[in-house]
Structures are given as structure tokens and as C-alpha cells.
Design a protein around this nucleic acid. Structure first.
Lengths: 106, 106
DNA sequence: CAAACTTATGAACAGTTGTTCATTTGTACA
DNA sequence: TGTACAAATGAACAACTGTTCATAAGTTTG
């Protein structure tokens, strides 16, 4: 990004908000990641292999998605024996997706 | 994408919905594009140079964003003399962003 | 027609993303 | 200790994105 957009735009959204929106959008904008959020909205916490099975996504790829999401503060993880359990940290994301799903088809 | 996620996941969201969500997310996930949607939510239609001034984004870059969004069905455009006016075609996107902005900070 | 203006287009390029594969690290338990 | 299982990591690579720059194409008006 080089040109800086005007400080505020007609509607209520400040640039910082637009950027936060864009951030959440970007880090969630992938079917697998949305599915992950869905699962963790319903389950509190799940191990990598749980998720891998439920979503039918290969271990390594899933791990990449998960650690990316963790890095960006969306998920958290804790080890428990052999397994590592992931959970939703940034709960807003649930609302966001919920919200999207709702207002997109009416 | 190679592995196909399970057909449905715990919550109400089908894979098609998740993909549609992801699509809207992706095509909107950029501060400039969000700003464009904001403008066009408030203004019905605006020329490229209008938008360029308001957002302080260079002509060519803006044009690329606009035509991308048009290509993906989010915007429409009509010529009127020298100018080309863009308008929001996929109105859901407004709700989506509105919705996001709302539920993200409480 | 030419000049001025508005927008689109295409090449080029750096940076990011999604994916795969092979390898490594951490843990449990025989 | 060694074997097996769970998950992370890193290299490699193709595909896509955002951006810039230069140029073209469409429109208006003198």
C-alpha cells in the first residue's frame, strides 16, 4: 500500500476500522479456515487430528493453517499429552461469520 | 485446493455457503476496496475520478480494483460522456461490511 | 481533425498464499 | 531405550495479488 486513503469515509467506518475489518476478512477468507472457525465455535477445543478428520484436510496443510491463524491471534493452542488442542481466541470471528452467513441470503 | 472438506459442518453453514462467504471475503478484503464499497453504499453511483479523489488513490490502481470488482460481480458500471460511473451491484456486500463493523467491537 | 480529458489495459515485478513433501520435534509407553 | 503416534517446520513451487508505469482507447470540444 502506498497511497493513503482519506482519513474517514462517508459512513461510520474509520480507516483503522476498515483495516481491522480487512484483516479479519483476509485471515478468514478461505473455506478451510472458515470451516475451522465453525468447528471451534461449536466445540470449544479440538485436536489437530480431530479437525483433520472432520474436515478431511491433510495433517501438514492443516497445521500450516492452524499455526497461521494462531500467529494472527485468532486461535490459541495447548498441548495435552500427544495432542495439541486448538481453540478460538478471537471470538469476534464467530460473530463475523455468523453475521455474514445470515445477511448474505435475504 | 485439493482435499475436499466434509459436505457439512456442525453449524448451519454448508460448504457452498462457506465458499460464497469466502468469496465475498476475499474480494472485499482490502482497505481500498472496502472504502469503495462504503462510498458506493452512500452514493448510488460515482465516477472513477470522484472515487479517486475521495479516496486519494491513483487512477490506474483504482481502475484495476474497480474492474476486478466488476468482473466478480460486485460492481456495475455505465459510461456517461467522458466519465464512467460505478455502482454497487451485489448489495449484500454492504450488509456484510456493516455487519462486520458492528459485531466486531462489542 | 487535433487536443484535452477520463478511464482501461498490459507488462513487469515484488510480495504473499496455498499446497506438497520430507523431515523433525515432542510425547507416551512397551 | 526404541518404536509409534501427533503435530510442527522448512524448502520448494505454482498461483495469485497489489502496485507502478507507460500506453491505448473512448469521448468531447475547439
Amino acid at each position: 500500500m502506498t497511497a493513503t486513503p482519506a482519513a474517514t469515509v462517508d459512513m461510520g467506518l474509520s480507516v483503522e476500522k476498515m483495516e481491522k475489518v480487512a484483516f479479519i476478512l483476509k485471515t478468514t477468507a478461505h473455506p478451510t479456515r472458515i470451516a475451522i472457525v465453525q468447528l471451534l465455535a461449536a466445540q470449544e477445543s479440538l485436536s489437530v487430528s480431530d479437525i483433520s478428520e472432520k474436515l478431511n484436510v491433510e495433517q501438514s496443510l492443516l497445521s500450516h493453517h492452524l499455526s497461521g491463524m494462531k500467529l494472527k491471534g485468532i486461535l490459541s493452542s495447548t498441548r495435552e499429552g500427544k495432542n495439541i488442542y486448538y481453540a478460538l481466541k478471537m471470538r469476534e470471528v464467530i460473530d463475523v461469520i455468523q453475521c455474514l452467513a445470515a445477511c448474505m441470503f435475504l
